[in-house]
Amino acid sequence: MSTVDLETYVPHIDHQYDPRDPEVALYVDEVSVRFGGVQAVSAATIACLAGQVTGLIGPNGAGKTTTFNVITGLEAPTSGKVFLGNEDVSGLTPYKRARKGLARTFQRLEVFGTLTARDNILAAAEFRRGWSKDKSNPRAVADQIVERVGLQHVQHERVDMLPTGLARLVELGRGLATHPRVLLLDEPASGLDMAESEALGDLLIDLAQEGIAVLVVEHDVDLVMRVCDRIHVLDFGRIISVGFPKDVQADPAVQAAYLGAED
């Protein structure tokens, strides 16, 4: 059961940052979500900085995907707020948040299955051209991204024919085609082999260096330790630890959560 005592639990707030700090690209402010009897997320606070890869880890069912859904507006929180680039976007619909520079991938794939890999990315580039002032040629954007995420060899394959790992890369490419400022990745490496997952790690670091705030949910501990600048740990919907990868790894509460989850 829960490794945190419910009675004495105080929601962990990331006091180090404030939603209005200029370097904060995404701020999840004490978000809670309840599904009937299940408290999926409890007052979780997460800060993601521009130019950094932030990790969001935790055992199965901890509430990571639900948090992503709240950030992107697909799920309404029971309470709490979401700030994008210092602006409160809690009341906005998903597409409006996307237009403010938020992109994501899905743990349970949401690809455009009947389109080719390239057309998935092209469609996203065209969407962006439709709603942004940037009128760069979507086809050029698509070709460039196909190469960047390493999909040239399958770009003309229908995506529902692709293995999951590659389909996840399609989703990543699709997100990139909207030129996001904040990129949420839900288990992007699951389904990838060692080499592919390493390439993905390099790509994430690159993206962060370009100034994107990357928030990644991932079960591959090595990858997380390698690419993340800071990590938040969710357990039963609560943030139980925040900090540098090394510190989080050494945190007894984190170890207890993972051990608890294993029996």
Partner: peptide, 11 residues
């Protein structure tokens, strides 16, 4: 194929 993905891509 995916209304949810469309929405999160700004459509």
């Amino acid at each position: 194929d995916s209304p949810a993905a469309c929405a999160t891509l700004g459509v």
